[in-house]
């Protein structure tokens, strides 16, 4: 068993959904009318377009997330090898974390961690 069985799982998962969707689109009785195809908005026709430019309040979070997610990848190798690397690596990673923490604190103080 190795990584190629991942492909198998992908196929089986897709197969499962595919078969059920196929069954469900062929077997059950269907009846269509224009009302049914309307998007649900509490029974009232939609006003204006749906895909509008949207003000996401967490844009800054997303950027900080990217930074941290990349940094986490650096921590993984250290975490595995930590026992053999010993104290020296620990001090180095403390410095690394310190820089990360300062970054987080800076963002915090600058108000980046506030929903806008």
């Amino acid at each position: 068993m190795s990584a190629e069985s991942l492909i198998l799982f992908f196929i089986v998962g897709a197969f499962l959904v595919g078969i059920a969707l196929l069954f469900s689109s062929l077997v059950p009785p269907t009846s269509t009318n224009p009302q049914k195809a309307e998007a649900y908005e509490c029974g009232i026709p939609t006003e204006g377009i749906t895909w509008l430019q949207f003000n996401v309040g967490y844009y800054l979070f997303a950027i900080i997330f990217l930074v941290f997610d990349v940094e986490t990848v650096f921590i993984f190798p250290w975490a595995i090898m930590m026992k053999s690397l010993g104290m020296k690596a620990f001090i180095e990673i403390v410095i690394f974390f310190f820089v990360l923490g300062i970054g987080l604190l800076y963002a915090w103080k600058k108000g980046a961690l506030k929903w806008e």
């Binding site: 509490c42 509008l52 430019q53």
Partner: peptide, 18 residues
């Protein structure tokens, strides 16, 4: 999609009757 000014566009949504 029409390029619109975020400040001006308002997003109307019905809460209710259902």
């Amino acid at each position: 999609l029409p390029v619109s000014n975020i400040e001006e566009e308002e997003y109307h949504i019905n809460m209710g009757p259902q």
